Computed example of a mutant assay.
Amino acid sequence: MRLLHTADFHAGRVLRGADRTPEIRDALQEVTGLARTEKVDAVLVAGDLFDTVNPGADAEHAVFEFFLRLKELGIPSVAIAGNHDSANRLASLAGLLGWVGTQLVARPTPNPRDLVRTLTARDGTELVVGALPYLPERRIVQLADVMGADVGAWRQKYRSGMAFFLEQLEKSFRPNAVNTLMFHGTMDGARPSGSERDFQFDLSNAYTVSGQNVPQAAQYVALGHIHKPQQPSESVPAYYPGSLVQLDFGEAGEQKGVMIVEVEPGRPARPHFLELSSGKPLKVVRATPDNLEAKLARVQDFPGHLKVVVDVPGGAPLPGLKDRVLRLAPNALAVEVDKGDAGRESERAKREGLSLPQLFERYYRERKGVDLPETLLSAFEEANRAVVDEHADVEAVGT
């Protein structure tokens, strides 16, 4: 049996005003082409189909076109929701996607059987997929409690909760089938890409899954969430295929692709990484005010997007810097000033004592050049209160 494992489409991503969806759509078309030429029996999509919970029409078109193309090729697929996806939104589409051969698991339920999908390959071999969508810590505690687990000692221990669910999924494995797991989360040993959004992945905290908790009967573990292609641990057959394109400047220079997995019942999987060519490359150019023109002259023919960082110790003002950069490099999406350690310390001191809404107001004013609209401030304050209330609920459960 041959599988194609992909994840982290992030359809709808906008990078510094540039809509990346056309590039992502091209990448998805390339993936379906590889599914055909590699003669795969099934496709596994490990979450983050979209970049936001309310994707635009173009983003939805790109993703749903991908599943329709797989249908035309006669290739079934299993997909799960990631942390960027709206689980409720995807759940409402699960029935429709099922008509085109895509089995979607958007929300976990107390019944582990609801998280298991089975497919049959062309040669009759069965594929069992224990599919676990993204689960925040609070949701894991609630579900494990309903399912009868003794959560009293680990209500705030994410990895223990994940281990419990993986054990439940293992019970669906069959001796004469290909047995796989798929989940959207962070495994111990995972290396971040340096993405500008990697603040979401605090890899030093408890929100990780230990390789020791992965059932030994799992022949392959299809992961999503981290954008850098990798195997977090050599002792576990678990892989991140990474994102389809370089999504932001933290991923500049990374090769993107998918995993092709050859596997048969009872034998170790043989995965290998297959590169993709779609998507514009990203590049970060560092310069000083004195060598800026020379540095930008070297990247005049760069076919992708640029981020230009100008080192200005102390943060002395540089009037007209952005216009100066764009005149020499029209493909620069971002122009930033690095003030050095002294400048950063000064900025940090100015932020001390400010609330999150005040910090957001300041950030908006600095980036947009205008005051934050009252409606947007109200929405931010409401979202901030919701997060504070959720953390308070979790702490109350643990006391």
Rank of each mutant, 00 (worst) to 15 (best):
L3P: 01
A7C: 12
G12Y: 03
R16T: 05
G17Q: 08
G17S: 02
A18V: 14
A18T: 05
R20I: 05
L28C: 00
L34N: 00
A35Q: 01
T37K: 00
T37C: 00
K39R: 05
G47T: 02
G56P: 09
E65Q: 14
E65S: 15
E65M: 08
K71M: 13
I75D: 00
P76D: 04
V78G: 02
A79V: 01
A81G: 00
D85P: 01
S86K: 00
A87S: 01
R89L: 02
S92M: 05
A94C: 02
G98A: 01
W99T: 11
V100R: 01
P112E: 05
L119S: 07
A121G: 02
T125C: 00
V128H: 13
A131P: 05
Y134K: 03
Q142H: 14
V146T: 08
M147N: 03
M147E: 13
D150I: 04
V151I: 15
V151T: 14
R159D: 15
S160N: 07
G161S: 12
S172R: 11
M187N: 04
A190Q: 10
S195Y: 09
D198W: 13
Q200C: 10
F201W: 07
D202W: 06
A218L: 11
P229D: 11
S235H: 09
P241R: 02
S243R: 03
Q246T: 07
F249W: 09
E251F: 10
Q255A: 13
K256P: 05
V261K: 06
V261R: 09
V261A: 11
E262Y: 04
V263C: 08
V263P: 04
G266V: 10
R267S: 10
R270L: 13
F273H: 05
E275M: 07
G279Q: 06
R286E: 15
F302P: 04
P303N: 14
L306D: 03
V308C: 10
P313W: 13
L318M: 11
L321W: 11
K322G: 07
K322C: 05
V325C: 10
L326I: 11
R327A: 13
N331T: 10
N331Q: 15
A334T: 10
D338K: 08
K339Q: 14
D341I: 13
D341W: 10
A342Q: 11
G343H: 11
R344N: 12
E345P: 08
R351F: 10
S355A: 15
S355D: 08
Q358L: 00
Y364E: 07
E374P: 01
L376H: 13
L377E: 11
A379W: 03
F380V: 03
E381I: 01
V388H: 09
E395Y: 07
